[in-house]
Amino acid sequence: MSTDPRIDKFCDALEQNLTRLGVEQPGDIVSEIRSHLLSAADSGALEAALDEMGSAGDYARQFRDELRIEDAYIRSGPKHTVATLILLSAHRLGAAIGLFFTGILYLTAVSVLVTIGFEIFNPSSTGLFTDDSGVFFLGTIASDTSAYTEHLGGFYIPVAAAMAMGFYLAGGAIARLALRLMRKKSNRQV
């Protein structure tokens, strides 16, 4: 049996990284990887086996990401998808991009919901307006409402509620799309 010091070094670093990343039962994973590396060493292929795994830190992240992406994709709720994108965005560009667009859409949904509150208490200065040049403006105007033409009128609240729901659903769809792309990428890496 080989006792190549690179095996101990890799396995120790892998266990530390798995523990740090909160992967369950790191000892079980490390035992299996050690067994794999020992077999590879016996057949003179340790170098190739270590190359396939990359650094211990990156390899530990593969375990965590494989579980996290799949879990979030299956559960599909915004809480899980957004939480997963936040956690993965530090080292995955796809997650960062997905989080960016999801965040914009969710914030827009919240903003539109806030205008509904203003519409209830101050209907004359809140709504969908156009100015003299025909530019649309959604929200609240501070003063001089005569410079704007209001549209929708009493229908603003149901329309704004539908818009907020649309932005919310679009944000969720973007988050799921990002997870789906990362899931496919994980499969491609095999």
Binding site: I29, E32, I33, H36, A40, A49, D51, E52, M53, G54, Y59, Q62, F63, D65, E66, L67, E70, S186, Q189, V190
Partner: peptide, 10 residues
């Protein structure tokens, strides 16, 4: 081999 174990784990 490198990507097999994370897949087996999942």
């Amino acid at each position: 081999g490198g990507a097999l174990y994370p897949l087996l784990n999942r």
